[in-house]
Design a protein around this nucleic acid. Sequence first.
DNA 1: CGCCAGGGCCTCA
DNA 2: TGAGGCCATGGC
Length: 218
Amino acid sequence: MYNTLLRHFGPQGWWPGESKEEIIIGAVLTQNTNWANVEKAIKNLKRAGLLSLRQLSRCKEQRLSALIRPSGYFNIKARRLKAAARFFVSHPFKYWDGLPAGEFRNQLLEVHGVGRETADSILLYAFNQPSFVVDAYTRRFGHRHGFFASKANYEEIRNFFESYLPGAPQIYNEFHALIVKLGKEYCRPRALCDSCPLNKSQFFLAYSKNKQESHHSP
DNA sequence: CGCCAGGGCCTCA
DNA sequence: TGAGGCCATGGC
């Protein structure tokens, strides 16, 4: 499926940010939010010279929330950005060199506003660590293909992908980005299976046949 | 107008 | 542990 998606859509070139710091900031801003809105907030931050964790840690929360208003949840996200900024000021990037990714992940999860997906996005896209990112698109895509139950928990789903994929960050990076692309164009809330690039794959056909035999809905 | 978008925290069983 | 409420803007 990875190869089919890559062939169909081409390399996605993620993360859409230019620096580690911008990726971390974007990971918080994009929580349950359209990326286009995040870009407006990032542009505001850049113009204000605040696209930096050190600057964010010094900025007043109220000023910050005004700047990131277009990204939605601006009061909540201002607080979360401050927390993430403080975290990386007290534990700079170099601090994590050579430390186990699992420990880094646990520390990230302690930060207010950094949950599993945000932590994994930071690990994978800012630090090139092989942690598979599970988002709403991933759940929808995986559930529709019968990989796991719709109510499967985060770690269960992450483990599913990590156990079937080579543990290379570049693969996790590209696959997640491709799943997002698929989720936006085909695997939408109302699924467009007829034109989906995956409905011609050998795996999909075998799966559909299986489903039919066991009387499940498609 | 309603739906949706690259979640996470808090509360309460 | 997990379900449910809450947070908010902007595009279609």
